[in-house]
Structures are given as structure tokens and as C-alpha cells.
């Protein structure tokens, strides 16, 4: 069970490695893409500004030095789909990333790109992104047609659901799960909206809109209206948690946001291969703090600390018992 950390520049490499990252992932958006499609069409699931590297030379230096530290580097090519006009550019990019830059895996969503890359037999392995919405064992079996070495499960699956999938396919493919930072109010693979900076995420944008309930029955009493309104308020609070507690930090500057630390003992038991920390675009400090927190819990779990003690430690690391108690900051409900 490895700790997978986001990285956006070579400057972050040494500190992430020292903090305990065991795998790295990043994005690249070449200038040709930006010239052709502007910032409106994203090559991967993060804005081209801030979340991705923009030169092959920078990426090559990052990959070479990461390899010297025994850290594999994966790269996102995980837009939901690519059109016929975009595909040659993406295939060429994938070839270059694999054969010239030397990245260890390409993280892919689009089934057509997955097909084409599996046929291309590149040196880099293929990982299926969480955006592919692999929610069941049959979907994993479908994806195995394209020879991925790893599948990233969506964060909407429960521990039991992850366990059932892992149990069925553990020997055939690695399973990666979400561990820390950003959530998604929707099923990421079936959300057709943009996070473009002009409008922001749809889920948070909704929280600021005027709303009107319509009752389907005969009498829409004041009591019913209040009941629905209270639930909407709770939902908006949940969305606030999903979005990193309004992108907040603790007094010590530690990141808030969705968290799966308490589930790490379960994931070790289930045979999960990798724990993903989200946030390529986050500040170096947030990345560092995130890796330290996850690695602390992983170390204790590896050392055989009892689950209840691990959970206690995880909650103390978050330094926000009131948020842990709210129940909205957890990726997974732990028994």
C-alpha cells in the first residue's frame, strides 16, 4: 500500500520524498494544446494554469530525479474524452512521455484512448482514472480488455464496495483509492460540467443560487417547506466540506478537506495498492502536510497498531475534532 502524492514542479520533489511519498503523479499541458484550445478545453482534469507542468524539459528533470529516489512518476491524460482532432496530439504526447521522458504510467479515462494506448504497447503502464467511474467488478473486468496495471476507484464507493471489488480482482490489477483533500459532490465520471475559473465548480455555484421547491402532493405545508429547506441547508454544508471546508486550513496551516485516514487499516486488510492524495494545484505546504499525515498513519498501520488507536491518531492529526464529528469530512464511513 503506497502513498501517492501530487506534484506540480521539480522544486517540490525533495520535500515530498523526504516526507514519505512513495509514488508521484502530475500533469503536463504543452503549449501547442493551449494555443489551439485555450484554457476552455482541458487536456486533463486540472486547469492548465497552476496544476500542470508546461515543458518537457521540466518534466524530464522531475522524472529523472524522482527515479534516482526510487519514486515512479505517473502522468494524467484523463479528460473524459478526446475528439478525433485532439486524439493524434494526445497519442503523440503519450508516446513522448513514455518513450522519451520516461514516465512510469499514463492515467487515462477515455476508453478510446485506453484502447489506442493498449494497442501502442508503450513502455509506460496504463492506469484507469477515477473519472472512468469504475463502480463495480464487471466494469473492472471490462477494462481488463485494455491491459491496465491499475484502476483508480471513484471516491463515492464505500469500504464494503471497495472490498468486494478488490476481493474479486486483486490478483489481476492494482486498486488505488482516494485518501485526502478534494471531494466531489457528484459522481466525477458522470459530471458534465466545468470547473473553469469564470464560473467555478457547479456544486459550489449551486449553493449561491436562488432556489424554489415544488411539492408533488396536494398540500405544501409550511412544515414541509421548512423540512426541505433544512435539508438543503445541511446539503450545502456538506458541499462546503466536500470543497475542503471552503478551501480552509487549521490555525497551524494544515489542510482541511475530505479525508480517508481512518480507513487506512481497512485498506491494508483489503489489499488496496495505493492511497491517492489529491491536489496537484495545491500549495507546496499543503502537499507536504498531506503527505506527512498520510505517511504517519500508513507507518502506524504497517507497524500493526490496532485500528482504534490508528483512528484516534488520525483524528488528532486533523486537529479539528468538530469537523471530524460532523461526519461530512470523511470519504469513507468506518465501522
Amino acid at each position: 500500500m503506497k502513498v501517492l502524492a501530487p506534484i506540480a514542479s521539480h522544486d517540490e520533489l525533495e520535500m515530498l520524498a523526504a516526507a514519505g511519498a512513495e509514488e508521484l503523479y502530475c500533469g503536463i499541458v504543452p503549449r501547442e494544446w493551449m494555443q489551439k484550445y485555450t484554457g476552455a478545453i482541458w487536456l486533463n482534469r486540472r486547469s492548465p494554469v497552476g496544476g500542470s507542468l508546461d515543458s518537457y524539459a521540466d518534466l524530464k528533470r522531475l522524472v529523472d530525479d524522482a527515479h534516482r529516489l526510487q519514486l515512479p512518476v505517473f502522468i494524467t491524460l484523463n479528460a473524459p474524452s478526446y475528439t478525433a482532432e485532439q486524439l493524434p496530439l494526445v497519442l503523440e504526447l503519450a508516446h513522448k512521455l513514455s518513450e522519451e521522458v520516461g514516465v512510469d504510467a499514463l492515467i487515462v479515462t477515455d476508453i478510446n484512448l485506453l484502447l489506442r494506448l493498449s494497442e501502442a504497447r508503450l513502455t509506460a503502464a496504463l492506469h484507469v482514472s477515477s473519472v472512468a467511474a469504475t463502480l463495480n467488478t464487471e466494469a473492472v473486468r471490462f477494462l481488463l480488455n485494455f491491459n491496465p496495471s491499475r484502476i483508480v476507484l471513484p471516491r463515492s464507493l464505500t469500504i464494503n464496495e471497495i472490498g468486494a471489488i478488490t476481493n474479486d480482482v486483486r490478483d489481476e490489477v492494482e486498486i488505488e483509492v482516494f485518501m485526502l483533500n478534494d471531494g466531489c459532490a457528484f459522481e466525477e465520471g458522470f459530471c458534465s460540467t466545468t470547473h473553469h475559473h469564470t464560473v467555478g465548480a457547479f456544486c459550489t455555484s449551486l449553493s449561491e443560487m436562488e432556489t424554489k421547491f415544488e411539492w408533488a402532493g396536494a398540500r405544501f405545508t409550511t412544515r414541509r417547506q421548512n423540512w426541505l429547506r433544512r435539508n438543503l441547508t445541511d446539503y450545502r454544508q456538506w458541499v462546503w466540506y466536500v470543497n475542503g471546508n471552503g478551501c480552509g486550513v487549521t490555525a497551524k496551516g494544515l489542510p482541511y478537506g475530505p479525508c480517508g485516514l481512518c480507513a487506512i487499516p481497512d485498506f491494508q486488510r483489503l489489499g488496496v495498492s495505493s492511497l491517492k492524495i489529491v491536489g496537484r494545484e495545491a500549495s507546496p505546504f499543503k502537499k507536504l502536510a498531506s503527505v506527512k499525515m498520510v505517511r504517519d498513519i500508513v507507518n502506524r498501520t504497517r507497524a500493526g497498531m490496532p485500528k482504534l488507536h490508528v483512528i484516534e491518531r488520525a483524528k488528532s492529526l486533523r486537529e479539528a475534532p468538530e469537523h471530524c464529528a460532523a461526519g461530512y469530512m470523511c470519504y469513507y464511513k468506518v465501522d
Binding site: 463515492s156 464505500t158 459532490a185 457528484f186 459530471c191 458534465s192 435539508n231 446539503y235 456538506w238 461526519g327
Partner: peptide, 22 residues
Amino acid sequence: ISTSRVCMAAGLHHHPSEKFQP
């Protein structure tokens, strides 16, 4: 537009801390 395993309406009958589970 979008869909989710977390349903706002399904939260109506749950205690706040138990709402909005996938």
C-alpha cells in the same frame, strides 16, 4: 448535467451526521 451517488433528497429522513452518504 450531473448526477451523484449522494442524493440530497435521500438525506431528508436521516440525522444530519448520517446524511449524504454514497
